[in-house]
Each structure stands twice: as C-alpha cells, then as structure tokens.
Nucleic acid binder design. Structure first.
Lengths: 214, 214
DNA sequence: TTAATTATAGACCGATCGTCTAATTAATTG
DNA sequence: CAATTAATTAGACGATCGGTCTATAATTAA
C-alpha cells in the first residue's frame, strides 16, 4: 500500500511541474498590467485584450494563468492591496515623524501618484467598490476586508496622535479611522473629476483640523 | 425676411410630434429606465438593450429619440440632476426646521432610497464620476457643474446654520460645502459595499459634530 | 385619396467580449 | 537520440455589444 506523503522514489518522466523551476514572470506581468487597467477603468469595462496588449502576451496564455476574468481580478486586487498596505506602513509607522504628519505624508505620496498618471488612475478598491452591484459577489467581502486593514492602520496612527496630545482627547479613533477612508475615496474620485489635487488637499486639511487639539 | 420667432402661420403637414398627442411619453420612459440602470451599473457597462427591455420599447425607437448612447446619457444625467436638486431644495429650504437638521433630514431621505433599492443603486453622479477616465469627455464639465449646484445649496444651508449660531463662527462654509459632497459620495459607495446605512450615519454624525458650536 | 412627417420594428454589421480546444514548445528521463 | 509530460501559445468560437439601416405603421394636412 503506497503512502502518498512519500515523495516519488524515482523522478517522474517528462517535463517537471513549474513550481521548482520558474519565477512565473508572465503571470506577474499580467497582474501589473491588470492593476494599471483596472485602476483606470474598473473591472467590468476592462477588456482582456487591452490587458494583454500592454505586455505583448497572447490571449491563450491568459487562461493558462487564470481560470477566468473573475479569478484574475482577485489576483489583481490582492496585488494592489499588498502594495498599498506596504505604502501605508511606510508612512504611518515612521516614528521619526509626528503621527498626524505621517498621515499628511501618505496623502502627499498619493497625490503624487495621481498626478503622475494624469488623473486617469484612481484607487482600485474605490473603483471596484463603486461597481459592486454588478461585480461577482466574491468581491464584496474582499473589498470590505481591505478597508478594514487600512482602517486599522489609520486607527493606530490616530491613537498615537492622541497619546502624543496632537489631537483632542475625546476623539473616537475607531470611528474616525473608518470616516477617514470613507471620505478619502470620495476625495480621490473628485480629484480625478476635476483633474486637480485640490480636493485631496481640502479633504486632508479639513479632516486634520477638525481633530487637532487646540 | 422671415422672423423665426413667429410661429408657423399654418400648421405643418404630416404627423405632429408625439408630445402634443400622447401622455405616455416614450422618451421619458427611456430616460427613467436609464436612470435606474445607470444608477446601478454606471454608463460604460450599461447596455441599450437592457434599458429598452425594462420598458418594452424596441431598439429602433431609441435611436429615433437619441442620436447616440452618449447623447442619451446626457439626457439621463440632466434628468437625475433635476430630480436631485428638487429633493435638496425640499429639505434644505424647509425653514420650519433648523438648518443643520435639514441636512440630517436630507440624509435620512437618501438613506431610505438606498435601502429601498436594496443597496443596488447609488448616486448616478458618483458612479459616472468614478468612471470619468473612460467616459466621453463631454461628461466631465457636466458632472463638475452638478456638484457646484449641490455645493451651493449646502453652503447656503451652512450659512443659515452659522447665522443661527448652530455651528462655530469660524467655519468656512464654502470649503465645508465642497468637503461635504466629497465625503458624501464616499459614504454612499461604502454603504453599497457593506449593504448597510451605517457608513452614511457615521459620515453625517461625524461631519455635523465637527462643526457644531459648543 | 395623396403627401408629408413621426414613430415603431427588428434585421443586420463590425467589433469585442470571455472562453475553450488544439497545437506547439520546453524540459526531463530512458 | 526518442519518448513523455507539462507549460505555453495560437487563434477559433459563439455570444453580445453599440450603432445603423430599411421597411412600415400611424397620423394629419392638403
């Protein structure tokens, strides 16, 4: 009776599975192209062909690496969430800077990104959230979870600001962190509409000055 | 030399326009269906066929009343903006109620609407704003103008609240009115994502309590 | 009636959508 | 080398899209 947990005593014939051999470059390229396209256009209107053309990969390869467009979208969102969480940590955990200033620094970085792409790209999570009614149901929980992660990072920063007496002692940091991201997505949308970072400035300034200690 | 302002001395030959003949206006039905569909799905992913099916109108009629989908979209947005402005006036100009309470009343009305449609429909202007990068350029100015109209209505209400000493004397009502709509759109988006009005409650409560006089 | 105009009806087109199957290429063993 | 197996590519496929088109029904003046 064979034990499946034992590795094969003799190597199998034929080409070995990929995992041991390749960094899977094509797949990563597709995801990067997907982030770019979906950040600009959302999920539903994004075409596979456009995503492929950006990186010169034929269509047949797409359905080798992803079993469906929906599956691909999840990989794109995961990649974006990972990238964004790292960016948040970079600024919000920077203890060489006062907590409130960290939030401003994050905002400035985001502003630069929006300008860099000429207001054509927004927040991927915001884009998909807006079209949630026509998205596969599998996206809802995922987007909710991402906002929770972001929210906790801001919450911790606000708590640090409170401990630092930068902000009023009576603010509810949990609620305020949720409020922050609610408004942030609106500000990104408006900035794209106006093709100006002014809404982002207005948003951050108003948000911060509504909580600073006097 | 004929004066264009003079009506035709003799009635024109042929079938007269429908408006003078029939109460059930096909064009209006198409627009109403368009509001429903675009409020749920946005512009790009909305199909003409789906809009027609809702009201049992054949495709041939669509391109009789509208010269293109883009043209139709403008009519839909105009209709929505008119409807929404009337709703805002209904609440924000109600001088039987203190100014800040008027804003809360508007918010409650909006909340009911979102619940009524089971979180499937959002704000048409917000939906189209999110996809502005892939929309015909003609939409950008139109959406911007609509936000300006809404903003002025809130601004006037905030000014009344200030005069009433409901809110702090040092608030910038213009900036705050813009800030209000920036965050509002984010709150609507999040409510649809969570399928809960909690984000709208959180948003309004936090906004109001950040400006009330102490 | 006939002429003129509005409105309905839906077939049709090229483009594009997501998906799938077959063929090719690459990697490994005997 | 040949055989075998997996990875990847290539493009066909049917469905659907927005948009156009021609035909015809409906309505009214002449």
């Amino acid at each position: 009776m064979e034990n499946k947990l034992n590795q094969q005593p003799k190597p199998r014939r034929g080409r070995p599975p990929k995992s041991s051999r390749d960094g899977s470059d094509t797949r990563a390229m597709l995801i990067r192209s997907g982030v770019a396209v979906l950040t600009e256009s959302g999920f539903a209107t994004a075409g596979i062909d456009g995503i492929l053309k950006n990186v010169g990969v034929p269509k047949g390869s797409f359905y080798h690496y992803f079993k469906s467009k929906e599956d691909f979208g999840h990989a794109v969102v995961d990649s974006y969430a990972k990238y964004f969480a790292a960016k948040l940590d970079k600024y919000l955990l920077d203890d060489t800077v006062p907590p409130l200033q960290r939030i401003m620094n994050f905002s400035n970085d985001a502003k630069q990104g929006i300008v860099k792409f000429e207001f054509k790209r927004g927040c991927l999570v915001g884009n998909l959230g807006q079209e949630i009614a026509i998205l596969p149901e599998s996206y809802r929980l995922k987007l909710q979870d991402i906002f929770i992660v972001w929210q906790i990072k801001i919450e911790n920063c606000l708590l640090a600001a409170k401990q630092n007496s930068e902000i009023k002692a009576d603010v509810n940091c949990i609620q305020l962190a949720e409020y922050f991201w609610i408004g942030w997505e609106g500000a990104v949308m408006r900035a794209r509409l106006l093709e100006s970072v002014q809404p982002l400035d207005l948003y951050i300034d108003t948000f911060v000055s509504s909580i600073i200690a006097n």
